[in-house]
């Protein structure tokens, strides 16, 4: 019998704990497939964040670290400096992790041009702790710590990390993608593959921001969550390449 589909060997057999309709699972698979297709098992080390993907070390079938909240880019820096250019190092981080508590670490990893890949999962909320406001929470969006909706006056405008990090001179490749439909999933995978290729070539800091759903804390069904992402997140966080030094 012909095998039509096989789970990538870069994922363990451990069952994901993610909620129905959560995009973390899709994003995990894309990263794992890219590592597998690039033959990187044995040559990659990942860093999990604090957030819903805290257990990513149980899912990615390679050497893994679990970092303190927001510190994954610093941990990845230490790893990369120690293992050298032949081993690929990546961080996988949420928006609370990367865009709030870990801003210093991500900015300076980019600023030093660390040869790492960061997968930044932006779901506009603190998923793991039950739906508090994140720096990325949209204006008018309700969260448990902005129960009547975020206002610009009180909390400022949502932070745009890809745009911001693209301004850093040593950033090499920054792209924002989404996994809301098959076409975008294919694009997201291509972007992730490109980031790892750049790292293999010894280029600088790469970050792929992936817009992601959190049906549970958005209070929506999985299908409604995709609609909400398309109607609210993508317009404020436009998809596209924000920096690509090779193309410049």
């Amino acid at each position: 019998m012909a095998v039509l589909f096989e789970k990538t060997k870069l994922l363990t057999d451990k069952q994901f704990h993610y909620c129905p309709g959560c995009h973390h699972g899709i994003i995990h698979r894309l990263v794992a497939e890219v590592l597998d297709e690039m033959n990187l098992q044995g040559k990659c080390i990942g860093v999990a964040p604090v957030g819903c993907s805290v257990f990513a070390y149980d899912y990615f079938n390679c050497d893994m670290y679990e970092a303190a909240h927001g510190r994954a880019p610093a941990v990845a820096t230490g790893i990369k400096r120690a293992v050298g250019n032949d081993t690929m190092v990546f961080t996988y981080q949420g928006d609370g992790d990367l865009a709030s508590i870990g801003t210093a670490e991500i900015v300076h990893a980019a600023h030093r041009g660390e040869k790492i890949v960061t997968i930044f999962v932006n779901n506009a909320i603190y998923g793991m702790t039950g739906g508090q406001m994140a720096p990325t929470t949209l204006i008018g969006q309700k969260a448990s710590t902005c129960p009547t909706g975020r206002t610009e006056e009180w909390s400022g405008m949502p932070i745009k990390m890809s745009e911001m990090l693209a301004q850093i001179p040593s950033s090499y490749y920054i792209e924002r993608v989404a996994v809301n439909n098959t076409a975008n999933i294919a694009k997201a995978k291509k972007a992730i593959a490109k980031a790892f290729r750049y790292q293999m070539e010894g280029k600088g800091f790469c970050m792929i921001e992936v817009l992601s759903t959190c049906p549970t804390n958005w209070g929506l069904s999985p299908v409604e969550a995709i609609d909400w992402l398309e109607n609210n997140m993508i317009p404020y966080y436009p998809l596209g390449v924000y920096r690509d030094k090779e193309a410049e």
């Binding site: 510190r71 941990v75 820096t77 230490g78 790893i79 990369k80 400096r81 210093a104």
Partner: peptide, 26 residues
Amino acid sequence: GCFLQAESEVAAINMVYGAAGTGARV
């Protein structure tokens, strides 16, 4: 060897965590 000036002591100890986790003396 490798000397790297970190952006903060918070980052420095996390770099230690990263590098020492590979078995190096840090």
